[in-house]
Design a binder for these strands. Structure first.
Lengths: 132, 132
DNA sequence: CGAAGTCATGAGAACGATTCTCACGCGGCG
DNA sequence: CGCCGCGTGAGAATCGTTCTCATGACTTCG
């Protein structure tokens, strides 16, 4: 049942493992190309989709709507603080937030609650280089 | 400097005022068509863009990436609890969440923090009709 | 080892939302 | 009332993503 492990999928996973930060499918595709690991773009998308379904990677949407992927350290529910310039990512949790979210939603009679909580900012490095 | 008030823009604003919930540009376009208020799709997009810039409407991204627009009661920062089926929306604030977000971000050395906090769920009505 | 079946691949087409182009027309000031 | 410039709209263009379909790579079975 598990997805067949092919050269291409292995390459995608490997690339994700090395890049600690959120990357778009297209960026990953280019990275693989640059490395000589030729993989079709469609395959990259499929691999990412499969990984996302298996909770092997986290997905989030950049402000322009592009999907970004990342191999996270923990598979449990968590959120991210992401640098909007370089993609640098810090995993965070917010137990307070979680309970607040479900409380609020329940109070309004809503069910099947999901929440999107992402923080975007400029990391110290990017701030330094833009001011330098 | 202010945008020129044309029949088309007025129509978009009016439609937003009547529809309390988040709607996509395309839905609004159809609504206007249906009413006989013929407005080009491009114009709807432009109007919404202008309104969003002026903070006259709130924008958020549906799970599939489509942009949804809504005329909110308050112009101050707030969040939303949205029914993913019908778009029904409840405005919420989370003072706790706000401070948590900035604290966490600052602790990591991030600047220019923005946060995305949206709650998605199924409202009571949609739950009833899907179970009926 | 070889055959057959299954699932993966990849190039390009298709898609859907959004933006752009550009000729034309309305809005508002003088 | 007339001019100038922004707004409009139809369709083309863009861009990320998904689909199609012929081909290729494993697996399993003989």
């Amino acid at each position: 049942m598990a997805a067949r492990m092919t050269r291409q999928r292995a390459a995608v996973v490997e690339a994700l493992d090395e890049l600690a930060d959120f990357r778009s499918a297209q960026q990953l595709h280019e990275t693989l190309r640059a490395r000589g690991e030729s993989v079709g773009l469609a395959t990259v998308y499929r691999a990412l989709q499969a990984l996302a379904e298996a909770s092997e990677v986290d997905v989030l949407r950049a402000e322009d709507g592009e999907s970004l992927y990342r191999r996270c350290a923990r598979r449990e529910h968590h959120h991210h603080l992401v640098c909007r310039h370089c993609g640098r990512t810090v995993e965070i949790d917010g137990p307070t937030v979680e309970s607040w979210a479900s409380k609020v939603a329940a109070a309004q009679g809503f069910d099947d609650i999901e929440h999107t909580i992402e923080l975007w900012g400029t990391c110290a490095d990017c701030r330094a280089s833009s001011k330098g």
